[in-house]
Computed example of a mutant assay.
Amino acid sequence: MSEVKFTVIYPTPTDIETFEKLYQEEHVPMAIEKLAGKSRFVASKVVGSPQGKAPFYRIAEIYFPSMAALEACAASEGGRETVAHAVKISSGGAPLFLISESETFQFNPA
C-alpha cells in the first residue's frame, strides 16, 4: 500500500533570513503540532540544481497513511491554519501544493 504525500514547494523568498526565522520558529512547530494524522514530515532546503539557479528554495513533504487521513487533516482547523501560514510566510510568491501517492524503494548498500 502506498502512502499519500502532501508537498509544499516554496519559491525563493525575497528575504531568506526572515523566511528561515519564520519557517523554523513558527511554521515547522505548527506543522508538527497541528497536522493531525501525519506519519512523517520531511523538510528540505534546495541547495542547487544541475540546470543552474534552482527556482525553488524549500520543499516540505508531509506523509499520511491514506487519502482519508490527508483529507481529514486538510479539513481540520489545524490543517487549514497551517496551510494559511505557509502562504503567509512565502514572500517569494505563492507556494505550490501537490498531493501524490508515493512508493518507496529501498536498496541495501553493497
Score class of each variant (00 low, 15 high):
Ser102Ile: 12
Ser66Trp: 01
Pro95Arg: 06
Glu71Val: 04
Ala75Lys: 09
Gly78Val: 05
Arg80Ile: 03
Arg40Phe: 13
Val83Thr: 06
Ser44Asp: 06
Glu81Ser: 12
Glu3Thr: 05
Ala86Gly: 14
Thr18Ala: 09
Gly79Thr: 04
Phe105Gln: 13
Ile59Gly: 08
Lys88Arg: 15
Glu61Leu: 12
Phe105Pro: 05
Ala68Ile: 06
Ser66Cys: 15
Lys53Asp: 09
Ile89Arg: 01
Ser76Gly: 07
Glu103Asp: 14
Val8Asn: 04
Tyr57Glu: 08
Tyr57Ala: 11
Gln51Trp: 01
Thr82Cys: 06
Val46Lys: 11
Ala72Leu: 07
Arg80Ser: 01
Ser102Val: 15
Phe6Asn: 00
Ala54His: 02
Phe56Gln: 11
Val8Ile: 15
Ala69Asp: 15
Glu3Val: 06
Val4His: 02
Arg40Met: 13
Cys73Ala: 10
Pro13Asn: 07
Val83Leu: 05
Ser90Phe: 03
Thr7Asp: 02
Ile9Phe: 02
Gly93Val: 03
Met1Tyr: 14
Ala54Ser: 13
Ser76Cys: 11
Pro13Gly: 05
Gln24Asn: 09
Lys88Phe: 09
Leu35Asp: 02
Thr82Trp: 01
Ile16Gly: 03
Pro55Glu: 09
Ala54Leu: 07
Ala54Thr: 04
Pro50Gln: 09
Ile59Ser: 13
Leu70Met: 06
Tyr57Arg: 08
Thr14Gly: 08
Glu77Gln: 15
Glu25Lys: 06
Thr82His: 01
Val87Ala: 11
Met1Glu: 14
Val47Asn: 10
Gly78Pro: 13
Gly93Met: 02
Val4Tyr: 03
Thr82Phe: 00
Ala72Tyr: 00
Ser100Asn: 06
Ala86Asn: 13
Lys38Ser: 07
Ala60Thr: 05
Ile59Lys: 09
Phe64Val: 09
Arg58Ser: 12
Tyr10Phe: 13
Ser66Met: 14
Phe6Gln: 00
Thr82Gly: 04
Tyr23Gln: 09
Glu17Leu: 03
Tyr10Glu: 09
Ser39Arg: 14
Lys21Pro: 02
Thr12Met: 05
Lys34Met: 04
Ile9Val: 12
His85Glu: 12
Thr104Met: 14
Val28Glu: 13
Leu96Ala: 13
Pro11Met: 13
Phe64Lys: 05
Ala31Trp: 01
Ala43Pro: 05
Ile16Cys: 06
Thr14Leu: 06
Ala94Phe: 03
Val46His: 11
Ala43Glu: 08
Thr7Gln: 10
Thr104Cys: 13
